[in-house]
Design a protein around this nucleic acid. Structure first.
Lengths: 138, 138
DNA sequence: CCTTGACCTTCCAATCGCTGGAATCACCAT
DNA sequence: ATGGTGATTCCAGCGATTGGAAGGTCAAGG
């Protein structure tokens, strides 16, 4: 059974290789309903069509851009339905950009505070340290 | 029992208010060994000394700077042991700054890619969208 | 004294996005 | 047959919290 399911269908391992999504992760995605339940061979192996592999690639790329699972559900839906307005897609993307900006700002604030403290810390074998003094509070 | 345990000891609720760390979170910190087990009244209530409340404040501030629990363990240890060299503290801080930088860079890369795509998306009611085209891959 | 209500206790579960392991079964080669 | 690889299921854990349920305790008021 080198060609499960017939028309270009592949097993989960090959789908994983082709999409870059771990086989285990594919099953997880199915279990949470991000992707529909895959077809099965007579013996129970999952079968993936090229189109389904494309969905996996889509998911992988979206994850690499930091989209959450729920947002990806939306995006896949918009992708499947070609008649959808691009405004909706842009809105989802913009919301995510805003979230990224917020997170970046948060981390940058931490970094700045810490860098200031670290710069003020002489960092030799003397015990006194502005970092600990700051953490210990006023 | 307005003054559990005698010498300035307070209940978990007051320790929470005084430190800014949620009571539930205090119990969690104790359960994972970040802070030592608190003393107890005869009836089993946890009792916190002013010094212990200070530790909680320390933890809170360190968390707000994004330090992980394990790093905070180290920092608390260094804080308690006043004879420790500041170099050690600075090293922990620097490692965390580096981690923050890496995370920021990762998120900024996502943001930049996404912003480029969003800018190229006209965002009206036409269905064609560069964002989806990118996600769908080459 | 008894109730009310605010507080405390413990334990268990969910979050998010995976990742790992264990036990079992299916396939293909020799 | 036997071995090796890959498939299946389920269960559990990561980090750092947050939530809820079920029950014990305290101080005050009627």
């Amino acid at each position: 059974m080198t060609n499960p399911g017939g028309a270009g269908g592949v097993t989960i391992g090959d789908a994983a290789k082709a999409s870059g999504v771990n086989a285990k992760l594919i099953r997880y995605y199915e279990s949470i309903g991000l992707i529909p339940q895959a077809g099965r061979t007579a013996s129970g192996y999952r079968v993936y069509s090229p189109a389904e592999v494309n969905v996996l690639r889509f998911v992988k790329r979206a994850r690499s851009l930091g989209f959450g699972i729920e947002q990806i559900q939306t995006l896949v839906g918009l992708w499947r339905d070609r008649s959808r307005a691009s405004a909706e897609v842009k809105q989802v993307a913009q919301a995510h950009i805003d979230a990224l900006e917020a997170k970046i700002a948060e981390l940058a604030a931490m970094r700045d505070s810490l860098r200031e403290l670290a710069d003020a810390c002489h960092g030799d074998d003397r015990p006194d340290c502005p970092i600990l003094r700051d953490l210990a509070g006023p």
